[in-house]
């Protein structure tokens, strides 16, 4: 192997390395893209599942939904008064959480979108 051939081979190896790195980056990007796509589709699946569950809960048929079955069993066991209390507490908690979120967002908007204000508004 002549020196030129060695240089060429080195050059080829360099090019090949560059190509490999580029391929690695592209493959990584595509894999990440695919993963995010999977996440997105999973979210959509969850939405569909949630739709089915909402429809079942509204119609009173709980076939095929363990979550609804367990909630129904809880309602059966504790009775309506306790169930209403529990439900009310959950609603209050959710409403309170949403209120706090909106409050923080308002605080952030009011104080500007800097990292420090965000951190301070949440962890003051």
């Amino acid at each position: 192997m002549t020196a030129l051939e060695q240089l060429a081979s080195i050059g080829n190896g360099f090019v090949q390395s560059v190509v490999d790195i580029a391929t690695f980056v592209i493959d990584g990007f595509m894999a990440g893209f695919d993963g995010i796509l999977q996440l997105y589709n999973a979210l959509l699946d969850q939405q569909r599942y949630m739709d089915s569950m909402i429809a079942s809960a509204a119609s009173g048929t709980i076939d095929g939904f363990n979550v609804l079955a367990y909630i129904g069993a809880y309602r059966y066991l504790v009775g309506d008064p306790v169930f209403v209390y529990t439900y009310g507490l959950i609603l209050i908690g959710i409403t309170w959480t949403i209120y706090k979120l909106c409050y923080y967002i308002w605080q952030m908007i009011k104080g500007g979108f800097t990292g420090s204000t965000i951190i301070k508004s949440i962890f003051k």
Binding site: A57, Y70, G72, A73, R75, Y76, I90
Partner: peptide
């Protein structure tokens, strides 16, 4: 819609 879930003994 949780409130509309009837009491059930399915499980």
């Amino acid at each position: 819609s949780i409130f509309a879930i009837p009491a059930t003994t399915a499980i």
